[in-house]
Design a protein around this nucleic acid. Structure first.
Lengths: 238, 238
DNA sequence: AAATATTTGTACGTATGTATA
DNA sequence: TTATACATACGTACAAATATT
């Protein structure tokens, strides 16, 4: 195989950090020492160390040297699911049922937590079904100022989330995850008893400063899990 | 201010991508073109483009050139909270109450979903309280093979999560988030009615191949939200 | 308090290797 | 096959920050 030299150097040090041979706070050899050790130029060592610094495995301070970073506040990658894909991946049959779809005119003030700006807004509600059984209800608003082309989409078959995923890249997003008891209307839509536990996901996304969409999805507690897997060393490589 | 040149070049291109001036699939000027445009060396241009590639904003292909990446499957950074910090940040008073603490001897087979390996295991259960009111119950197992030093910690005041956060870096983690109804035991501990909605977080972490800990936290649905904020351009800088 | 030495940061120019349209 | 464009690596130089003297 034979990795590039700077990656081998990186892997070498990374291994020592992850195995505990180098503990948090320990000093990494200087670039000069490493270039002697590996018989290479400083640029090459620098690339390896820069990469480790970018991955936040080490801290670098001028004059002082490079040190194994103290374990950072834990963070994980949470995939923002495309529901049709998720359901199909589980071997189930996916279906979307549109409930309501309307264009709301500009309004000065709106619900604080569910606001996609002052302009015209497309409001879509629907149900996601897996194997014919309700999985989640979704209420979504999309800014027609930011995404005018979405007004042509019907959403009688595909959910708006899938359309947005394919057409509009976002740069910023906020997600709130909580558990709540089903109110009577939601319970009826999901065909469960009122009070049944729901996993609720609220998300707002922006492109730069322009709001794109705000969505609230209420999942059947018994039918859906969010799952995240994170590998600290794969996250910020290269 | 005056950023380093390679960061200015990066910011320049990044701005064009995020604003839509450069759309997914569009070609970025070659390194040679950019080095002429900015009047700098290829190394400098290369550093800027490599950084964009690491952030997955562009794809680089030999001979073909560099292209604006198609929006990847959306992912968000989910902070794994340190509960004491979170609660204090909300201006509430945090308290931890130990329920049980025992060392379990090696057992050949264990619960599949809640398993930290074959060796000796520390098992700790406790309640997190905010302003004196129950917020979550936690059941945790820690591998004493991987983290022998934790046997000396009492956990009568600080939760094991905080201890682990400070002492043991992890490299891999899995998190599962779901909503469920409180069983009678948990309901009693949290002082709610059985059947109340709970936000349940299950997490297992490893250091390399060694399991470190497995934890199940059940949060009062009404008292806790998980919150994630993600900025596509801040995520993989440098 | 100031000077010095050390270490990282940035950037230059050059050279060669490698994948591929 | 060939030319292109990125990938890796060399060596050098100077700047910036900061521990130590």
């Amino acid at each position: 195989m034979s990795l590039p030299l700077h990656e081998r150097i990186r892997a070498d040090i990374e291994g020592q950090i992850l195995s505990g041979t180098l503990a948090p706070g320990d000093r990494i050899p200087t670039e000069h020492a490493l270039m002697a050790e590996h018989g290479c130029s400083r640029m090459t060592v620098n690339k390896a160390l820069s990469s480790l610094a970018a991955a936040r495995l080490i801290d670098r301070r001028k004059r002082a040297g490079s040190f194994v970073a103290h374990p950072r506040l834990h963070a994980m990658i949470l995939d923002v699911p495309d529901l049709p894909q998720e359901v199909l991946a589980r071997g189930q049959c996916y279906e979307y049922r549109l409930l309501t779809r309307k264009v709301k005119p500009s309004k000065p003030a709106q619900d604080k937590l569910f606001d996609v700006g002052p302009g015209r807004v497309l409001e879509v509600s629907g149900i996601h079904l897996a194997d014919g059984r309700p999985l989640a209800v979704e209420h979504r608003q999309v800014s027609l100022e930011s995404v005018p082309s979405i007004e042509d989409a019907a959403f009688d078959r595909d959910p708006p989330g899938t359309w947005l995923l394919r057409h509009v890249p976002w740069t910023e997003a906020e997600t709130r995850i909580s558990a709540s008891a089903a109110d009577s209307r939601t319970a009826a839509l999901l065909q469960v008893q009122p009070g049944a536990p729901l996993l609720q996901i609220e998300r707002r996304t922006w492109r730069g400063d322009d709001p794109i969409t705000a969505v609230r999805q209420s999942f059947l507690g018994s039918g859906y899990d969010l799952f995240a897997r994170f590998n600290a060393t794969e996250s910020a490589k290269r």
